[in-house]
């Protein structure tokens, strides 16, 4: 699997696709959706779709695809090779959501949670298949959240499709297993070959599984933690593991959209002027209180120096 497009800029979201098999644009097709790397605090989350003609579902089983979680990394690589070799009737597409995309989305001013992010990635991929001319009829989706709601959402987005959302769909439907293998292989490669844009010299890649509970992962987070900047962009800042470590060992950072106690915020607001540096006892000076600056100055946070 060639991740070149993602590796060129691993701070954003990236789509990788196979060729669309001709037969998929003329025959009714089924499509499976699964994700890889939802839980880890490190690395990207990958959404994958795989599709093939409904009439060739049985042949898909011959590829011996199974739930990616029950397989070793080497087995997944082999199975991905089988999927690639079946390119005359099987196609796939992936959406790689970089850890930076996950952090900045989840920590956005108007919060964009992981479920919404996942659903949108899945919807985007199905739309891609439709736009590419794949004759979709059936869609099978694996989910960790409530299946009914998700099924309803997808059915509404794609009224012409028969959507089935099931927990553990990756072990029930071979087309979902195939999607899960594509996603997991991409996630493995992305994590293994991660190139750090930060200037950190030789980076220790012994980060364990990337799951918050793994002691190796936690040790790695501590090793590369910076009190001001936090972590490299390989880390999902929005994960509570990363947040808690910053709260206990990092410098405090305040944003204007923080939800916090009024008193604390007000105390700091008084301090935001660049000139607070020249004025140790903040607040109004004896004659400053009587004099209201013109809007021209307050809008620009400009203050007279003569008053100090």
């Amino acid at each position: 699997m060639d991740l070149g497009d993602f590796e060129a800029d691993n701070s954003v979201s990236c789509r990788l696709t196979s060729e669309i098999p001709d037969i998929c644009t003329s025959e009714d097709c089924c499509l499976g959706i699964d994700e890889a790397g939802r839980g880890p605090v490190l690395g990207p989350m990958v959404y994958g779709i795989c599709f093939c003609p409904v009439s060739r579902k049985e042949q898909l089983k011959d590829l011996k695809v199974a739930d990616s979680k029950t397989l070793t990394e080497a087995e997944r690589e082999n199975l991905f090779q089988n999927i690639s070799d079946a390119k005359d009737f099987v196609g796939w597409a992936l959406q790689i959501l970089s850890p930076n995309t996950i952090s900045t989305s989840m920590l956005q001013r108007s919060k964009y949670n992981l479920n919404a992010l996942s659903h949108d990635a899945a919807i985007g991929l199905v739309q891609y298949a439709l736009d590419s001319g794949v004759q979709l009829k059936e869609v099978f989706v694996d989910t960790v959240g409530p299946a009914e709601k998700y099924e309803e959402k997808l059915s509404q987005c794609f009224p012409g499709l028969e959507v089935t959302v099931r927990p553990k769909a990756d072990s029930l439907f071979p087309i979902v297993s195939a999607a899960s293998i594509c996603a997991k292989v991409a996630r493995d490669h992305a994590v293994k070959g991660w190139s750090f844009t930060e200037d950190l010299g030789e980076v220790d890649t012994d980060y364990g599984s990337g799951y918050p509970g793994d002691p190796k992962t936690k040790a790695w987070l501590l090793k590369y933690q910076d009190p001001v900047f936090g972590y490299p962009q390989f880390v999902r800042f929005s994960w509570s593991t990363a947040k808690n470590l910053m709260d206990s060992k990092g410098s405090a950072v305040y944003w204007d959209d923080d939800e916090e106690d009024g008193e604390k915020a007000a105390a700091r607001q008084n301090n935001t002027s660049m000139l607070s540096f020249c004025n140790r006892s903040t607040g109004s000076t004896a004659h400053g209180a009587a004099h209201q600056s013109h809007r021209f100055f307050t809008e620009r946070r400009l203050q007279g120096l003569g008053a100090l």
């Binding site: 200037d199 950190l200 910076d226 009190p227 001001v228 900047f229 490299p232 410098s251 405090a252 950072v253």
Partner: peptide, 14 residues
């Protein structure tokens, strides 16, 4: 944002 840190920082690295 306001950063409660006074001193040098690894600006170029991170």
């Amino acid at each position: 944002c306001e950063i409660e840190h006074n001193g040098s920082a690894q600006v170029s690295q991170y």
